[in-house]
Design a binder for these strands. Structure first.
Lengths: 166, 166
DNA sequence: CTCTAAACAAACTTTTAGTAAGTGCAATGT
DNA sequence: ACATTGCACTTACTAAAAGTTTGTTTAGAG
């Protein structure tokens, strides 16, 4: 019943779509990435985007944002532009690969910008786009709530563990 | 330099901590889950929680919330209590295992409640806790932004793909 | 009686994340 | 002078998640 979705484009992985170019070799067709999926088609015809639908662009974006390192990456950019390795040092635990991949995903969805400065001692600055800023504002709210609720969370965890292990 | 963290407690996986019970066999010690980590200790001494720190409880909670299915699960609960399979049908693409795991993680962190009704044709209702409601509010804002920005995202994706594949 | 549905649990496979190492070049350290 | 370090990545390889399938228990429908 559940349609076996062969390609599972998840979170931060740079999504290289199958790209069914039905417009011919000249490639002048408007190329919306979710082409072929039911939601992609519905979207193209003006249907309301729905995150609960697996193929919806909004869900793809959500996955880029809320993937393992998405939130932290965006939060790391909230104080203005920052270089790759500075961001890496800021986010405790990210590997270079994951940060690069996450940034590429956010870049693709138009949430961050990338600016290459000096040619040779590589200097690259990342920053938020207007969309990225709005999204990051909400994420910052979320982070503040969670940081302010550690006591509550810790208590809930203790209770849960006591019940579970009993 | 980067300390190789052996145990990586991630997102939705029901975290069964090593549980270093230094209080003896009676186990009366207050058991805050991040015990042993630098951030856990700092937290216990009243330091401000920081999501950027790998061992912080707030980050654990963030990972439970923003994990692959966390946001969608919480969003699925925003209209009030709902049964397991109803939630599963609502969230296109979740497997039973993942939904159960995600719910357990959110349950442990005190974001959702679980209520077992009739004993035998299993009837279980899930709902948000006050904390979960606040968090879900912010997530709903985020979702609305993303659903309202599909055109922008689609455009950014097209541009990115054109540049990348060029 | 057989079948379905609910809410999971356990075993197994596939996908994704993390680790380690390599790249090219310049500024520092010894 | 010569090795080392830092920058911003990429590519192969390995560990850890997510996903799939099957099984469980018990009531009610047909």
């Amino acid at each position: 019943m559940t349609p076996a979705n062969a390609s599972s484009p998840t979170s931060t992985e740079p999504r290289t779509e199958p790209h069914i170019d039905s417009t011919g070799p000249d490639g002048t067709g408007t190329d919306s990435s979710a082409e072929g999926t039911a939601e992609g088609i519905a979207e193209a015809y003006g249907a309301a985007p729905d995150v609960f639908a697996a193929g919806c662009t909004s869900r793809q974006a959500l996955e880029a944002v809320t993937g393992r390192w998405g939130v932290l990456t965006l939060a790391g950019l909230r104080d203005g532009q920052i270089r790759f390795n500075a961001l890496r040092r800021k986010i405790d635990g990210v590997s270079e690969k994951m940060l690069a991949q996450t940034l590429q995903g956010l870049l693709r969805d138009g949430l961050v910008t990338r600016e290459v400065r000096g040619t040779m001692p590589p200097h690259v600055e990342y920053n938020l786009t207007p969309l990225g800023s709005i999204v990051t504002e909400k994420l910052t709210d979320l982070i503040n709530i969670l940081e302010g609720s550690v006591d509550l969370v810790l208590q809930a965890q203790a209770e849960y563990d006591a019940e579970t292990r009993g």
